[in-house]
Design a protein around this nucleic acid. Structure first.
Lengths: 148, 148
DNA sequence: TTGCAATTGAGAATCAGTCTCAATTTTTTA
DNA sequence: TAAAAAATTGAGACTGATTCTCAATTGCAA
C-alpha cells in the first residue's frame, strides 16, 4: 500500500495542535480509510481493519472518523437508513452526487457553474458557506431502461 | 384549524389505490403534520397529537410519515444526529436549505438558475432526476457576527 | 352479519453511534 | 529515571430513533 505521507502529516499536525496524540491505532485507521477509492461506511472500515489482524474497536473507529472529518481529510457524504457514508476528500476534487433510487448507485459529478452559483446565493443571504452537499435522487441510465 | 381538503383527498386517493384505508388515526396525523408551518420531527409530532387528547402511537406516526412521503405530501429535509427532519411540500414552492452549523438555524431559499442548472447536469449524465436536496452548511449572519 | 384483510398500539427488538471506565500508553515533571 | 499527569484504548453498557411483532380492533365487501 502506498504510504500517504501528506495525509499523515496533516492529521498528526492537526492532533498535535490540539494536544492530542497520533497513536498507531489512529494511524492504522487513517491508512485503511485512505485505502478506499470511493465511499465507505464505518462498519466495513472496522471489519477491514480487523481482517488485517490489527487490533481496534468500533469506538476508536468512530472517534477517529470524527477527528478525520474535523481536520477535513474525509467528509460525510450522506446519511442513509443504514448509517453514515464517508469519503476521503483530500487530494480529490470536490464533487456532488446523483443517487439512483432503484439500484443505489452513486454517480459523482462536478460543475463549476454550480459552485459559482452557490457562492452567489450565499452572498445574497449574508450566509458564510463552509461546505455543501447536493444530492440529486432519481434513476440512472441503466435503471431507466429496465423500467420501460 | 383550516381543513386541508385537497391534501386529504390526495392522501385518501393514494391509499385507496393501494388497497389501504384512510383511517381516523391517519387523518389526525395528516392534519397535525400540515399544521406545522416549517420543519418538524416525528417525536414532536407524536407529542403534539397526544397533547390534543387524540390516541396514537409512535409506530403509527412513523408509519404514516412514511406513507405521506411516498405520496409526496411531505418530504424528508435532512437527517441529523437527532433524527429525521420533515416538511410538508404540497402547495409550497420547492426550495433548498442553508444550515447554520453554529445555531442550527435553517434558511430556505429558491433559485430558478439552480433548478435549470441541475436539469442540464442530469441530462448530461443521462440521469432522470426525481428530486434533489441542496444543503449548504456554514454560518448565518448572526453567528458570523458573534464569532468576530 | 359474517369474514377477511388492514390497522392499531404497546412494548420488544434493532442498529448506529456514543459513553463509561479500568487498564494501558505516552508525555511531562521533578 | 521514577513518578505523576494526561491522553488513549477497547469491551461492553447505554442511548435514542426507528422498525417490528402480534394480539386486539376496525373497516369493508358480499
Amino acid at each position: 500500500m502506498v504510504e500517504r505521507v501528506r495525509e499523515k502529516k496533516i492529521f498528526s499536525k492537526f492532533l498535535k495542535d490540539r494536544g492530542q496524540r497520533f497513536t498507531k491505532e489512529r494511524a492504522a485507521i487513517l491508512q485503511k480509510t485512505l485505502s478506499y477509492r470511493g465511499h465507505f461506511d464505518p462498519e466495513s472500515l472496522y471489519l477491514k481493519i480487523k481482517e488485517t489482524g490489527l487490533k481496534t474497536s468500533r469506538a476508536s473507529v468512530y472517534r477517529t472518523l470524527n477527528l478525520l472529518c474535523e481536520c477535513g481529510l474525509i467528509e460525510r457524504v450522506t446519511k442513509t437508513e443504514h448509517g453514515t457514508i464517508y469519503e476521503h476528500t483530500f487530494g480529490h476534487e470536490h464533487h456532488d452526487h446523483m443517487l439512483c433510487i432503484a439500484c443505489g448507485n452513486i454517480i459523482e459529478f462536478y460543475s463549476e457553474d454550480l459552485e459559482r452559483l452557490q457562492e452567489g446565493l450565499c452572498k445574497r443571504q449574508g450566509f458564510l458557506g463552509v461546505s455543501h452537499t447536493l444530492e440529486i435522487r432519481g434513476y440512472c441510465k441503466r435503471c431507466q431502461k429496465k423500467r420501460r
